[in-house]
Amino acid sequence: MHVFPAFEFYACGDHGFTLDFGQQIDININGFVIHLFHQLQKNRRSYILDIIPAYSSITVVYNPLSFTKCNTNPESVIHEYFTNAILQTENIQATASVDIIRIPVCYHPSLAPDLEPVCKYHNIDIDTLVTLHTQKTYRVFMNGFLPGFAYMGTVDDRIATARHSNPRKKVAAGSLGIAGNQAGIYPFESPGGWQLIGRTSVSLFDLHSDNPCLLKPGDQVQFYSIPIESFQS
């Protein structure tokens, strides 16, 4: 694997520490983040409340009171916890192959209010947009914003579109949106500013499962087009 990238280690208040690889959205960097995440999870410590991977950073949330009895310094303990995980990550030879999660999407103006405006903006027809959007495999870089919401990339430059400056008050559950080169699906009805180009009836978040999210950091996703007749809301 590549040389471990440069990073900064800093406090996130009095109950968190972040390892940050800088301001970049990069598949290799994100790969390191996700390897680190799995290493940290595997060696989880009792003082850890959460481990949160993002595009190019990973944050550990800890309970400061866990350190009061033994009178140790959380910073040095957590720094060591990260260092051990980094050493483990360096030993990983290649990225494990992951299954591709295939998601049916109905690209139809009646379900996707921004489909026609986005096509018009790029001066293409709907079929071309669908081809450009479905021929790629997307990587889940991180979860955030809403439970089960996955930030995926990267959307082809020929259809990439900036988000709305005024977010919608209501976006339907299952809406597939793009924001710049990012793609994402709203697991629930919520406010949102992404350009809505399709909709899926696949459930992204199952409240009754111990493993509630369909999409997790590091997953590979491909979309395929279904006709409106096959769409069940």
């Binding site: 996130c12 208040g13 595009y55």
Partner: peptide, 11 residues
């Protein structure tokens, strides 16, 4: 403008 990172209670 920053790319998204974790935020916590009190940030």
């Amino acid at each position: 403008e920053l790319i998204s990172t974790a935020v916590t209670k009190g940030t």
